Simulated scan of single mutants.
Amino acid sequence: MPKLSIIVPCYYNQDNIPVTVQDLLANEVNFPPEVEFEYVFVNDGSGDDTLGALRRAQAAHPVNIKIVDLAANVGSYNAIVAGMAHATGDCLSIITADLQDPPELMAQMYCYWQQGIKLVIGNRQDRAETGPTRWFAQAFHWLMKRLALKNIPDGGFDFVFFDRQVNDEVVRLRERNSNVFYLMVWLGFPYVTIPYVRRKRSIGTSRWTLSKKIKLLIDSLLSFSYFPIRAISAVGLVLGVIALLYGFYIIGLRLTSPNEPPGWTTLMVVMLFVSAFQMVALGVIGEYVWRALDAARNRPLYVVKHVYAPDAPGQNPSPEH
């Protein structure tokens, strides 16, 4: 009997949890009756009553809901890895707690998995958001497809259905400052995409701030692309050639003209230009260096405070550790 683990990262989602749980449970009717379900909710250090809402949901449905309560906020991608590490299903899916992605697509994804497809991607063809949020998302995925992973689908994705083997490989990597969804594509397994339109959030407000989006862009680019460091090398080479030619030009003026060229403006422009490039280059190199240092420290991606495991009917869910 196949078991499906649905991983739901939660951060300040106390109002979403009752609706999310009911929608996920209602979605079970779209699957064959032999499928067993496990819901792994990961509380990513929420400062509201998200954990309380999860415990109440677990008390109402104790058999198939597991809660992984993290000691601190570690970011949604590390929280997802924590959920993957505690999931026990033969196949797994990741969906957000605000249900902007339609859970009813999971049944179609499950059919692809039964056919031997190890990774199924819900591919956003459009999104209900407008303004800067939409523009940033479009720019992010355009850059990633052209500078990092050329085989990712257009439009971006964070709604996936995948095999146990994919899950174990991602958990084994334990990669820091990365994008867990792009890691699944990077593994190289053939995948299929299912297009859909992402819904507008109807409950609560998003905690996905601009600074987090920029960090994700930098992390994703540096994790999957050497373009920034190669661009520095290319620009440095071009500037070196220009400097060499300009040097020959100055020497020629010195030899053919009795008066030295004033050159003050030119000298200052060149110095400022080269200095600015050096600062940018040092910044990019520093981004790579601190990531190498972070990996060398080998600190855990997350610290689990409690795991509230599902119990038999009629019993109160209790922490594993």
Rank of each mutant, 00 (worst) to 15 (best):
I242A: 15
I229G: 13
A148H: 00
V21T: 01
C10R: 01
D44S: 02
L237M: 10
M184F: 04
L267I: 09
A71Q: 13
I229T: 09
L272C: 13
S225G: 05
V180R: 00
L119G: 01
M184A: 09
F159M: 12
I7Q: 00
A72I: 04
V238A: 15
P132L: 06
C111Q: 13
T266F: 09
S46N: 06
P300H: 03
S318P: 01
T130K: 14
V280W: 04
R127M: 15
Y226L: 03
N30G: 01
R207W: 11
Y39I: 05
L253I: 12
V171I: 13
Y226R: 09
Q22S: 11
Q125I: 11
K213S: 07
A312N: 09
R56L: 13
G89Q: 11
I251E: 11
R134G: 00
A139M: 09
G236I: 06
A97I: 07
P190M: 03
I152Y: 01
D98W: 00
Y11C: 02
G314K: 07
Q138M: 07
V29E: 08
W142S: 03
S178E: 04
N316G: 05
K150C: 09
Q22K: 09
D294M: 04
Y191K: 00
V307E: 05
Y11N: 02
A296G: 10
N177H: 05
M1D: 06
A87W: 08
V171C: 14
V29Q: 11
D154Q: 10
R56K: 14
V307T: 11
K213D: 03
Y288S: 06
T193W: 11
W135M: 07
F159R: 04
G131T: 05
A148R: 03
Y12R: 12
F31N: 01
G155W: 14
I65K: 05
V269A: 15
W290C: 06
V166M: 05
Y302S: 07
P313D: 07
Q100S: 10
V241Q: 14
N78K: 01
M84V: 07
Q100H: 00
I242T: 12
F189D: 05
D98K: 00
V238L: 14
L272V: 13
K3W: 03
V284W: 02
K200L: 13
P195E: 13
Q138D: 10
L216R: 14
S206A: 13
V274H: 11
V170H: 02
Y246F: 12
V40H: 03
V304M: 11
A57S: 11
G116A: 01
P195Q: 11
F136K: 12
I285E: 07
Q125M: 09
G52I: 06
P132T: 08
V180P: 00
F41G: 00
N259V: 13
S202E: 11
P2W: 09
V197K: 15
T20N: 10
Q58K: 07
S93V: 12
Y246D: 12
G131Q: 08
W208N: 05
V74R: 02
G75V: 00
